[in-house]
Every structure is written in structure tokens, then in C-alpha cells.
Amino acid sequence: MATTLLTPSTDAPPHGSPRRIKEPRGDRVLNVILIVLLALFSLTIVYPFVYIVSASLSDPLAVSRGEMWLWPVGGSAAAYEALLDYPEIPRGFLNSVLYSGTAMLLGTAVTTMGGYALSRSDLVGRNVFTLLFVFTMMFSGGMIPLYLVVGQLGMLNTPWAVIVPTAVSVWQLIVTRTFFQTTIPHELLETSRLDGASDLRFFGQIALPLSKPIIAVNLLLYGVATWNSYFPALIYLTDNSLYPLQLIMRNILLENSFDPSKIPGMDPARIVEMQRLSDQLKYSLIIIASIPPLVAYPFVQKHFVKGMMIGSLKG
């Protein structure tokens, strides 16, 4: 989007052509303002990230002193080496990959099928189903009932507890439904029917291939949501070999925030020990945890814009 806004002249004839229409003065001023604003805006996003990358490669003391503000000071990879001293970190990383991978596939499969079904006007009870889904967006049973359900399904302390309860996001389901409604015309279905295609065949061979953008969007959103989540793991898992990276990271980072004056019997020497660990690892951990989403985004981004835009139209 930004590109089209910023360089309206790309569609114009090549440079030097006599018939080139000059940009009106107002447009040029606007462009400059927009470029500056967007540049500042990007800076607020890029700078913290660069800061963390540099901090993770710097001497922790220089960071604490405030000497490091852009490029690494006293560069060393010690923080990354230290990550490997804690077996739970690589293990947590692998767990996270497993959970997000599964949640991504499962969630996308269910959402695409559900979204398609809801998009069909000939579905019996369509409004009732939609209403039921939307209801869950506004009301939630709360933590304890959810915990009881997960417990009675026998999922406590299994990877499923992290994957299944949040498998479908109603918001994404509705976006997907709208996508099908707007991009797959009813006429297409009628034509296929005339050719003898069953519903299943139409969905598998016609609708799905036309829906790559929305599939990509769902994959990405589910993947990222599960990658970033720690709460289900915190509540449902009590075996730290199953912990995802985010929970391990949280444990390490939060240990920095103990308030010694409020913890009776907790001696300051212990707190110092926690702080050392946290100071050493916090930046490198953040980097490690951001790599997978960073790698995934560029591949999905082009679909992302397209899929989201179409899906967000009113059905």
C-alpha cells in the first residue's frame, strides 16, 4: 500500500518524456510529509529491534550503563552461548515449533472447512451456528470452567492442552467465511454442479485452489498466535519438559522483577542470582524467540495483504 501512495509516478511515462504530467505542488508536499511521517513511524518499529539485537551482542554492563544505544559495545556472543547451557531453552524452542506447527495446520484446516460451510447460503441453521460462534467472542466461561473441561478431556499435561482449546479463532472463521462469500460466486457452484461435481469435490478442487490468500493468512495468524502464547501452557502444563519457549522466557525474565521488600524469607542474595541470569539472557532470548515469525512473514506477506483486504469486506 505504501508503495502505491509514495510513488504515484511509476505509472507515468518514462523520465524525460515530453508529455509527462508534472505532479501538482500539493501532491509533492504531501509526499514529503508522508515520507517523513512513515520514516519516523518505521523508525519507532525498527529502532527497538536494532537495540535488542545490539544489546544481545554487547557487554551487559555497557547496556546497563546506557553506553550502548545503537551498535554493540564490547561485542561478544557470550549471551548466545549461555543459552545453550540451559537445556530447557533449546527444548522449549523445539516444543514451540511443534505446538505452533500443529496448531497452525489444525486451526487452518478447521477454519477453512468451517468458514466455507458457513459461507454457503443453503446451509441449514447457518444463522444459528454463526450466532453461536459470535457469542463466544463476547462471553467466555472463564479460567476455571475451561480448566475443568480441559482436565476432563484428559488433556492436562499433554501438548494437546496448548493446541486444541485455542484451535479456532472465531474472528478468523468469520473473515474466512466472508472471503468465500465474496470470492467464490454462487454461479461457480451452479456450473460445477451441472458438470456433476459433488460438494466435497467443489470445495477441494475449485474453492480451495482459489483461496490461497486466506489459507496463507490463517496459517500465519494461527502460527504466530500459538508461538506467542504462554497462558495455556502456564495453566495446563506442570511438566517443564513440555514448556514452550515463551513460558521459559517469561520465567527467566520475570525472575528479574521480584521485589525483595515484599517477599518474606526470600533473601537478597537469591534475588541477585536471579537478576544475573536474567541480565545475561534476556536480550538473546528475545532475539531467538522472534526469529521464526520473522522468517515466516516475508513469505506470507503478499498473501497477507490480499487475503485480509478481501476477507474484511462486508458479506
Binding site: 479460567m143 476455571i144 480448566y147 475443568l148 482436565g151 492436562l156 502456564l234 495453566i235 506442570t238 511438566d239 517443564n240 513460558l247 517469561r250 520465567n251 520475570l254 525472575e255 522483577s257 521480584f258
Partner: peptide
């Protein structure tokens, strides 16, 4: 052993267990 995190996070987990009767 069942492990729960230190700090407030641990309280959340254990409260869920206790309330869930587990």
C-alpha cells in the same frame, strides 16, 4: 514432581489446579 513457575505465574497455575479439584 510437578513444576510450576516462580512468582505470580505459579500462583495462577496452582490456583487453577486447586479450583479445578486436581
Amino acid at each position: 514432581y510437578q513444576d510450576v513457575p516462580l512468582g505470580e505465574d505459579g500462583q495462577t497455575t496452582v490456583n487453577a489446579m486447586l479450583s479445578g479439584g486436581d
